[in-house]
């Protein structure tokens, strides 16, 4: 009776499937997890956090795509030149399946967005990452709305990875700012597992402004919360520090 799960699988997108990240307070803030079939914007807090933002995207991709689906990583030519080439071994070590992944290098932002829309029309694709460096005036409200609609229709998730860019109004479901965070040292002072400081800058229908420090557990493909010491939180995150120190759950209007 394989038809039953098939029907269930098709029925779920109507009420929007969500991927539970594993970090309890994060999932609570997102009403159950990160939505499939939506556009999520991921901003690197600084240019030097490009690798952290890419790693965060790769981690989300690994978590949301699973082992059987194909994922597509689109990069602008500038991203490939300045950010370094994407390594399959490093990708695999973040839990991804680079063997099933595709990497696209496109010449400019407009081509990037067109390719992303095309990819979003493809329902069997798991996740699409579109990485761009610098300002992207082509990504206006209309363009992002188009992306969001395409994602919603097919159920494919798009992550717009923006480096060296300032947030602009868009139709994205969520907007994140990602910075790298000091990891918990392993034995003999070795660098630990990937750790990120993330801030939910905006959410379409829900609270925003909270920050978390997350560790990515590659083996189980989930995030783990680590204590976010109040002293380390940079002022640039904005909002009262007390909100984050206590559970990071209070609503920000």
């Amino acid at each position: 009776m394989r038809i039953v799960p098939a029907l269930c699988d098709r029925a779920i997108p109507l009420e929007r499937r969500r991927w539970a990240s594993g970090a309890v307070s994060l999932d609570a803030a997102l009403a159950g997890g990160l939505a499939h079939g939506a556009v999520h914007e991921i901003y690197a807090a600084e240019v030097a956090d490009a690798a952290a933002a890419a790693g965060f995207s790769a981690a989300l991709m690994a978590g949301m795509t699973g082992q059987v689906r194909t994922s597509l990583w689109l990069r602008s030519r500038r991203a490939a030149r300045q950010g370094g080439s994407l390594q399959a071994s490093g990708w695999a070590e973040l839990g991804g399946t680079p063997g099933r992944g595709l990497v696209g290098i496109v010449p400019d932002a407009l081509t990037l967005l067109r390719a992303a829309v095309d990819a979003l029309h493809c329902p069997t694709l798991g996740t699409v990452v579109a990485e761009s460096w610098g300002r992207m005036p082509e990504l206006d409200l209309t363009a992002s709305r188009r992306l969001a609609l395409a994602a919603e229709k097919s159920g494919t998730t798009l992550m717009l990875l923006r480096i060296e860019a300032d947030p602009v109004p868009s139709a994205a479901e969520t907007r994140w700012s990602v910075a790298s965070a000091p990891s918990r040292a392993l034995a003999a002072n070795a660098p630990g597992i990937p750790t990120f400081d993330i801030t939910l800058l905006r959410q379409r229908s829900g609270p925003s402004g909270m920050s978390w420090r997350l560790e990515w557990d590659r083996d189980q493909c989930i995030f783990r919360e680590t204590a976010l010491p109040g002293a380390v939180v940079p002022v640039s995150f904005g909002g009262p520090v007390a909100d984050r120190a206590g559970g990071a759950m209070s609503q920000v209007a």
Partner: peptide, 18 residues
């Protein structure tokens, strides 16, 4: 691609400069 051994941190970078 070979699966990384469980419990290890990433030993190879995600982005490589060449």
């Amino acid at each position: 691609w070979p699966e990384p051994p469980p419990g290890e941190p990433a030993l190879r970078p995600l982005l490589l400069f060449d």
